[in-house]
Simulated scan of single mutants.
Amino acid sequence: ILWNHEHIDQKINFDALLRFSHITPLTQQYLEKIYASFALYVFVAAAGAYVHATGLLSALGSLGLMIWLMAIPHKEKRLGLLTGFAFLTGVGLGPALELCIAVSPSVLPTAFMSTAMIFTCFSLSTLYPRCQSHIFLGGILISVMSLMFLSSLGNLFFGSIWLFQANLYMGLVVMCGFVLFDTHLIDEKDYIWHCADLFLDFVTLFRKLRMILALDEKDKKKEKK
């Protein structure tokens, strides 16, 4: 009891919490470049969602831009392609966001803030030296995603809502793992590709949370009726 009391009385040292002295100045500059670009692409995606059009065309366009991005080494062109990819990704999100607003206007801001909080926490946790052992996650995450894909295909025939929800929540956990994994690889890729990885992680995490919150709101409305 005495230990618990002393533990509660301890003040949180936010300076120590946010201190990254183990990261070299060069890596800090690299991080700043990545997350500044990442924030820009999230904003561009939001703009795309605001002026959304046909979801299929945007999906094909974003896929084409990603393939093009993989095929060329020129840095300036790749930045432009990644910007276009982020915009079309936002365009593709538009129709689904409208459906969420129809269910409840609170779903989108809650999903976005929750995504930002989860993404930030998992990203920061990877930057500490004691947490630099996430490289093994890659094989596990890909294996779990393969199993989820197979179960989703099987669920096309079974139509189980329980399996659908299990895949949804498992997908949320997997995406948190990918945030850890992709942040861990920060020194092994150029910043454009790393920014693309983080952007895709953020968007997928947002999609999962948006769907979970929307389904929860629909269930609440059914219970009230």
Rank of each mutant, 00 (worst) to 15 (best):
136 F>D: 14
69 L>C: 05
127 L>E: 02
4 N>Y: 10
39 A>K: 04
209 L>I: 15
64 G>T: 04
57 L>M: 09
210 R>N: 10
96 A>E: 08
112 F>M: 11
13 N>A: 12
194 H>V: 03
166 A>W: 12
116 A>V: 08
113 M>D: 06
112 F>D: 05
206 F>D: 02
82 L>Q: 07
151 S>I: 09
47 A>Q: 09
100 C>Y: 07
51 V>I: 13
165 Q>F: 11
222 K>D: 09
161 I>A: 15
61 G>F: 01
107 V>F: 01
84 G>W: 07
193 W>D: 15
136 F>R: 15
43 F>A: 13
8 I>K: 14
90 G>F: 00
19 R>A: 15
84 G>K: 05
45 A>R: 06
71 A>T: 10
27 T>V: 13
59 A>G: 04
31 L>C: 05
58 S>Y: 01
138 G>E: 09
106 S>K: 10
197 D>M: 07
108 L>F: 07
105 P>L: 00
163 L>Q: 08
43 F>R: 05
200 L>I: 11
202 F>T: 06
44 V>L: 10
216 D>A: 08
146 S>I: 12
178 F>M: 08
179 V>A: 06
43 F>V: 11
216 D>H: 12
56 L>P: 05
141 L>W: 06
103 V>R: 00
181 F>D: 04
161 I>R: 14
66 M>K: 11
189 K>H: 14
99 L>A: 09
10 Q>A: 13
15 D>V: 09
31 L>E: 02
66 M>D: 09
27 T>C: 02
103 V>L: 03
53 A>T: 12
197 D>H: 07
121 C>R: 07
96 A>M: 09
75 K>S: 13
207 R>M: 14
127 L>Y: 08
74 H>E: 15
79 L>G: 10
133 S>M: 11
58 S>F: 01
45 A>F: 04
33 K>A: 13
60 L>M: 09
216 D>I: 01
169 Y>E: 07
111 A>Q: 02
209 L>P: 00
42 V>Y: 00
57 L>G: 01
20 F>S: 07
112 F>V: 04
177 G>M: 03
12 I>F: 13
22 H>A: 13
109 P>S: 04
109 P>C: 01
171 G>L: 04
134 H>G: 09
130 R>P: 01
211 M>F: 06
41 Y>A: 07
7 H>D: 14
132 Q>P: 04
35 Y>G: 03
28 Q>N: 10
173 V>I: 12
38 F>M: 08
152 S>D: 10
104 S>T: 05
115 T>C: 10
187 D>F: 05
2 L>C: 08
139 G>A: 13
11 K>A: 15
168 L>F: 00
39 A>Y: 01
145 M>G: 10
207 R>C: 11
151 S>F: 04
165 Q>E: 13
42 V>W: 00
163 L>G: 14
204 T>M: 08
164 F>P: 01
36 A>V: 05
172 L>I: 03
216 D>N: 11
219 D>G: 08
83 T>N: 06
76 E>C: 04
69 L>F: 15
169 Y>K: 06
89 T>L: 03
188 E>P: 03
138 G>C: 03
124 L>D: 07
198 L>G: 03
117 M>Y: 08
93 L>H: 03
39 A>C: 04
188 E>T: 08
28 Q>K: 14
101 I>T: 11
77 K>F: 13
188 E>K: 13
110 T>W: 09
60 L>N: 02
162 W>D: 12
220 K>F: 06
58 S>H: 02
12 I>R: 11
124 L>K: 02
52 H>R: 00
152 S>P: 02
